[in-house]
């Protein structure tokens, strides 16, 4: 018993703040939302138990639920790789040998600073309008572009472009990761005459794997939960023609515009399961490609 305590005491001591927060602040609301997902709840009167009705309705009758899933999955599949590759490429360029690196870093982070402000929404709608700057550039090469943001066939791509352009946070994390790789490894490789791409696959990628893994997991979760930018760019309703009906935008409107918090909670738990499956898969796969220093023998 005493050994059990001495073995576990340090771990739980350091975990204490999180444990307190989890059990006192976080867990309750999460369980409440699970309970609410089995009720009809309009936020004014008390919730009424309806069993599995919300879930049954969702999978059998709700066409917009499937539409929202489709939009969200398309976005995740496009935006996550695009943003990560962009972020890694820029981080590698910025990592080495430039004196003005900090200036560039600040500049490249700027779009992410503007986040999902009203300014970005207005700007994006102007840029990708029929007579906007993007089409003006395209017309130089003889392309007559569509009205990107209001054409249901192209509107989603404008958000993917936004995601690519706001690559600041994964870039910064990549950069921190690159900076944590001991420089003497590269020096040794240099002396051995190892070509650059080999240095990349032999040193950079394996040592950066934990950070790549982190960015992959977090960006995927974030992309599934994308809300603010879409909400503000589509004026809160997923228009045109539901082509920007992201899952969380649908969920938000079900809850706060149509007073169906119970149904929205059910939607949330379905999304949670979807995200958990993807994250779980990522963690399983990580055994084969992510190795940590403190577990190396």
């Amino acid at each position: 018993m005493r050994r059990f305590i001495t073995r576990n005491a340090p771990g739980y001591t350091f975990l204490l703040p999180w444990l307190i927060g989890f059990f006192l602040l976080t867990l309750g609301p999460i369980l409440a939302s699970l309970y609410l997902s089995f009720t009809k709840y309009d936020m004014v009167s008390a919730p009424r138990w309806v069993g599995w009705d919300n879930y049954v309705y969702m999978f059998t009758r709700d066409r917009r639920f499937w539409k929202a899933l489709h939009v969200t999955f398309s976005y995740v599949a496009l935006a996550v790789p695009a943003r990560l590759i962009m972020a890694l490429a820029v981080a590698m360029i910025l990592d080495k040998g430039l004196r003005s690196i900090s200036l560039y870093r600040a500049i490249f982070y700027l779009p992410s600073l503007l986040g999902s402000s009203i300014a970005i929404a207005i700007l994006w709608r102007q840029l990708f309008a029929k007579d906007g700057a993007v089409n003006a550039v395209l017309s130089f090469v003889g392309i007559d572009g569509p009205s990107w943001i209001t054409d249901p066939n192209t509107s989603l791509y404008t958000l993917v472009v936004l995601a690519m352009w706001q690559f600041g946070s994964p870039m910064l994390i990549f950069l921190a990761g690159l900076r944590s790789i001991p420089k003497d490894l590269y020096e040794a490789a240099e002396i051995d005459g190892t070509p650059a791409w080999r240095q990349f696959t032999r040193i950079t990628l394996p040592l950066l794997a934990p950070v790549i893994f982190f960015n992959l997991v977090l960006q995927t979760i974030d992309a599934f939960k994308t809300f603010s930018s879409v909400f503000i760019i589509s004026h809160g309703n997923g228009a045109p023609a539901d082509s920007l009906l992201f899952y969380t935008v649908y969920l938000f409107n079900e809850a706060f515009s149509f007073f169906r918090m119970g149904y929205a909670s059910a939607l949330a738990w379905v999304l949670l399961v979807i995200i958990a499956v993807f994250t779980g898969l990522a963690f399983l796969s990580s055994k084969y490609w992510v190795h940590y220093e403190n577990e190396r023998d």
Binding site: I122, R125, A129, K130, P146, S147, T150, D151, P152, H235, G236, N237, A239, P240, A241
Partner: peptide
């Protein structure tokens, strides 16, 4: 106005 304008739902006054 063309359909690209029309399908914008609840535009703010400014749009």
């Amino acid at each position: 106005s063309g359909k690209d304008r029309t399908v914008v739902i609840n535009p703010p006054l400014s749009e």
